[in-house]
């Protein structure tokens, strides 16, 4: 299968980006950047980290596209790459109990809805192993098989963590009322 959707156009972009052409890379960014940024933001919890993740993904994309065999959906492949980079970043930084500054102060315009803020704060309070599964399964809509592949865990573990993550979220939201 070639790239989904406007396959010829996307295929041209992939070839152009693979060759390191800035305009092709910019077009791929405009097409997929916002969705990938949302994913990175949800996995890392801060805008700065999300921007760094997206920066690294697109800077490394031309070389990485050499490994992309165009057998699947380009957007899905990009999301998997972004998720791996974001998860690697979260693992390497291992928060030590600090509240991310972004959540400690105002300035999160898209989260102006109080329920949204409460939910985002609760998601960020989850331990990483539960939070990763909640973000990938419940927010991004991956299957348990895909979550298991991305996180290097079993499908059963993904199910268990999703169940525990939702339970913990409910508890956090109820405690915060």
């Amino acid at each position: 299968m070639h790239v989904s959707g406007a396959s010829d156009e996307s295929g041209g972009l992939v070839d152009g980006a693979r060759g390191g052409r800035p305009e092709a890379l910019a077009s791929l960014y405009r097409a997929h950047g916002a969705a990938l940024y949302r994913l990175a933001y949800r996995l890392t919890g801060t805008r700065e980290d999300a921007e760094d993740v997206l920066h690294d993904v697109f800077v490394g994309l031309p070389e990485a596209l050499a490994r992309y065999e165009e057998r699947g959906n380009l957007a899905g492949w990009l999301k998997r790459v972004t998720a791996r980079v974001a998860l690697g970043r979260v693992r390497s930084r291992k928060r030590r109990g600090e509240v991310p500054l972004e959540l400690a102060g105002p300035g999160s315009e898209p989260l102006a809805d109080p329920d949204g803020i409460a939910l985002q704060v609760a998601v960020n309070q989850l331990p990483n192993r539960l939070r990763d599964v909640i973000v990938l399964k419940e927010i991004e809509g991956y299957s348990h098989r895909e979550v298991a592949d991305l996180l290097g865990i079993s499908v059963v573990a993904s199910r268990v963590r999703a169940h525990r993550g939702l339970a913990r979220l409910r508890q956090l939201l109820e405690d915060g009322r």
Partner: peptide, 30 residues
Amino acid sequence: LRDLAAPAPSPELLERILQSRATGVRVNLP
């Protein structure tokens, strides 16, 4: 959770990416 909002990247991020590529920065993606 599905409706949870998220911010958009800053407008200058694309420029930073292209600038990094132009100056020879390379990243090995996993």
